[in-house]
Design a protein around this nucleic acid. Structure first.
Lengths: 214, 214
DNA sequence: CAAAAATTATAACAGTTGTTAGAATTATCG
DNA sequence: CGATAATTCTAACAACTGTTATAATTTTTG
């Protein structure tokens, strides 16, 4: 019973690994995986960079793990969107909103941009494939929305590129210490971006806390 | 008269510098400025990396020059948008479309993403300020559009973040050898992204060449 | 055609950074 | 408390890459 309170060795290790992934994600999402050094990641955790090697194989593995987790979050979010949304546009809206919120909560950053040539190795190939699969899944939802009448007639590829650009870009400007909560940001950006596809766009959009000083 | 045909020394040098900027922009926009090496840039031009140093001071100067040119193109495009557009939304639409087209024609890439910590030095500060000034200019246009009734009520910051995310993301997926021309891409993406802000969104959007194989 | 200037390539250098070995420290457990 | 294991740090190494000096080459010019 009481031994539940004291985490055992392997879960402690897992917790520390998770903390490293969070720290890495924060730095990667701002500076890019190439621009960030392992020393940057280690310093933000207050340890030496050598200490990281007990929890990740190497830098490539660290980048990979961050991307994998982000993709899993994206997949789970989209699945929930498909379950809970009535039409395809709402499925997309829910899927993207949950993605942003979950990323900010679980990873500490809104999104992770995967640069070209950032990864190498066999494992990397599978990660690229998962990313492509997610995009294809999104495109199918757009086509579905055009069939059910919720989404306007546009090239699905372009629609998804526009949506994902808006979403990924949040990583560049969002600051946790700012006036906007994760929910504010997610609903604000997703609400606006998906309005572009909406066949029946609302006149009003979710309001956000004022940030102008006066 | 005929001596106009033979470019003199300084213009030859300027032409070569321009070619280096194009090559660098292409590689930077895909891999990020940190992920790309000077050897990559040189190799894509078929010269040694040492040869680049006759045309740029160093790598920082090269990144800076690319960003400066992109910002000038963005400013010029937005000025033309302000001149030619009737309402503020149309000004934005024209400004962004011209930006994408001009970037693809003059720089060979649709956009350049400026990573955090990518630049250093005094000159860099001014570049960051110019980027901020451009964003502020865009936000003012959004506010103007809300005053003239062309743009829906949304936090201007969010609106501009959404627009610029869509635009910048084009750098990650656009391929010159693809089926879409620069104009297709620019009108497709900008038309869709600005529809999100439109108080009177059109039911139809600019069509794009089909890319599905059948 | 020869000399001078401009351009480029080769090769070496220096700083950074990913990675690893071994010492030092801390935590765990009988 | 002492011994063992786990963790972390320091320090060194090696690879990569930005930068520069020097030589080779090409272009220009008288």
């Amino acid at each position: 019973m009481w031994n539940e309170a004291i985490p055992d060795r392997s879960t402690q290790q897992a917790l520390k690994r998770k903390a490293i992934l969070r720290a890495a994600a924060t730095i990667f999402s701002r500076q890019g995986s190439h621009g960030a050094t392992l020393e940057d990641v280690a310093a933000s955790l207050g340890v030496s960079k050598a200490a990281l090697y007990r929890y990740v194989l190497n830098k490539n593995d660290l980048i990979l793990a961050c991307q994998e987790e982000a993709l899993e979050i994206a997949d789970r979010a989209l699945t929930r969107g498909e379950d809970e949304g009535t039409d395809a546009l709402e499925k997309i809206r829910i899927g993207l909103t949950l993605y942003l919120v979950a990323m900010m909560e679980e990873m500490g950053v809104p999104a992770l941009i995967l640069e070209e040539n950032a990864l190498h190795g066999d494992e990397a190939e599978r990660t690229y494939e998962k990313r492509d699969a997610y995009e294809i899944r999104m495109r199918r939802l757009v086509a579905e929305g055009q069939a059910d009448g919720s989404i306007v007639a546009v090239e699905p590829k372009v629609a998804v590129f526009m949506l994902l650009g808006s979403i990924h870009w949040v990583a560049k400007w969002y600051r946790p210490e700012g006036a906007w909560s994760p929910e504010d940001v997610a609903e604000g950006i997703v609400g606006l971006a998906t309005r572009a596809l909406d066949t029946r766009p609302a006149a009003a959009l979710p309001a956000m806390p004022d940030t102008t000083t006066h």
